[in-house]
Design a protein around this nucleic acid. Structure first.
Lengths: 173, 173
DNA sequence: GCTAGCATGTAAACGGTTACATGATTAG
DNA sequence: CTAATCATGTAACCGTTTACATGCTAGC
């Protein structure tokens, strides 16, 4: 998920690790900035796989500013990961949102295919708060907070489904 | 987060690790069941801290069925963690939802205090998609998917804030 | 002169996933 | 009889957090 965000942002333009960290934090919004202990090792792994390159701009003293860029292999890998997301990247809300942020880089047909996978998942009965095959009715949940969770989760799901249908329709027109 | 869910469910009743796993998966809904490699070590840690006890029901052969129960220390710790959640448990949506599932165990005054913390967080300008101190307008976001993310995140936030205000008002009446 | 923000990195500890290993019980 | 589900656990691997360590630059 972090590596996808790195590839995605570097596809837009080359930048320092520090700038990358700022953008990734902005994207996730809410939760606190990702740590250096996550970012730097992730970049090291991506460099080791040949997906990311870096060029040091030496300064008078101290460590040189390192500009990170995507290699051709990195660009290919980004498109592959966007076009053929793993099951958990469809299933897990925050992973899917990371994917969405860069989906515009794909050809429109591929975009629609990914959106449809997410829609199918959200429409599947197993997806949300079913009990014995029947959708659980909010009134049947005694606890106020469990009821609240159910209502909020359903409202989000409904809004996302509406947006997905609309966007798929736009892409197909 | 996993340990909180374990303490919360065991406060309702004693049960096997297997049943615990089923309930935790149901609670999180969408994403796949938590793995044994997460659950068993978590239970071992909770036992080591004296928060959970287990009693083996020996069977003819094979490993005995282990019934897990909360100790008094475990009950105290659960209430403490619910009443004084850490910043990330307020900030991170899915952590907060785990907390919510067991919030009803707290005295109502404490419940309201926790809900207000979450509401304050959601109302803070830093919370969602601000740009240079100004709320970012959806029309200004060129990319269709970034715009969608913004709209969906705002809709969820609005719904949750409404529910929080309503619930806090109910608790205070 | 100092503080906040810019900038890069390492190491230990922690917790989760995946894979492995085993066996009982229940329903078709 | 056999597949699915119930049931418990370990070990290797992986990525994240937290803490540590360093130094530049711009504004007050």
């Amino acid at each position: 998920m972090l590596s996808l965000a790195i590839l995605g942002f570097l596809a837009e333009e080359s930048m320092h690790a520090y700038e990358l960290r700022r953008r990734i934090s902005d994207l996730m919004g809410h939760s606190r900035p990702i740590s250096d202990g996550a970012l730097h090792p992730a970049l090291t792994r991506l460099r080791a796989s040949g997906l990311v390159e870096r060029v040091g701009q030496t300064r008078g003293s101290g460590p040189p500013r390192q500009v990170m860029s995507l290699t051709d292999a990195g660009r290919t890998e980004l498109l592959r990961r966007l076009a053929e997301p793993e099951e958990t990247e469809i299933t897990n809300g925050s992973s899917f949102f990371t994917l969405l942020a860069f989906l515009g880089r794909l050809p429109e047909g591929d975009q629609a295919r990914v959106l449809r996978r997410r829609l199918d998942f959200l429409e599947a009965p197993a997806s949300f708060f079913y009990r014995d095959g029947e959708p659980q009715r909010a009134e049947d949940v005694e606890d106020r907070y469990r009821r609240g969770m159910l209502l909020l989760a359903r409202a989000s799901s409904r809004a996302e489904r509406a947006w997905l249908r609309e966007t798929i329709a736009e892409l197909e027109s």
